[in-house]
């Protein structure tokens, strides 16, 4: 799998990164080398091997569904770049939806 300039732009879009032309030119050969190195896994017979997603044999960790105190709203909003005192404010999500 060759990582081209186009692959970089496509992946950047998926990752919500705006990558400049210059960055994409720099990144393409680097990502190609890294993915190329990882391709040594293609040569190993892994037929029938169970994948490991986690080092511990995890089962669902449940707790009682009881309300507990959470962080006060003003403390949480204190870190938000823009808010109206009750909610975080962002640019309009739906086009044409009121200002």
């Amino acid at each position: 799998m060759k990582i081209t300039h186009e692959t970089v732009q496509h992946v950047a879009k998926l990752a919500r990164l705006a990558v400049s032309e210059e960055e994409a030119r720099q990144l393409a050969p680097q990502l190609d080398e890294i993915i190329g190195y990882a391709e040594q896994l293609q040569a190993v017979d892994l037929e029938g091997v169970e994948p490991t997603s986690h080092p511990l044999p995890l089962v669902n960790v449940l707790r009682k569904d009881e309300p507990r105190p959470s962080l006060p709203r003003e403390e949480v909003l204190a870190g938000a770049p823009d808010h109206d005192g009750e909610q975080v404010r962002v640019p309009a999500v739906l086009e044409g939806y009121g200002e």
Binding site: M1, I35, A38, L41, V44, L46, V49, P51, T52, P55
Partner: peptide, 14 residues
Amino acid sequence: AYYRRAQQMRTLIR
């Protein structure tokens, strides 16, 4: 081809 194979290799390493 990539992520799943890596997880399988993780099993063999363990």
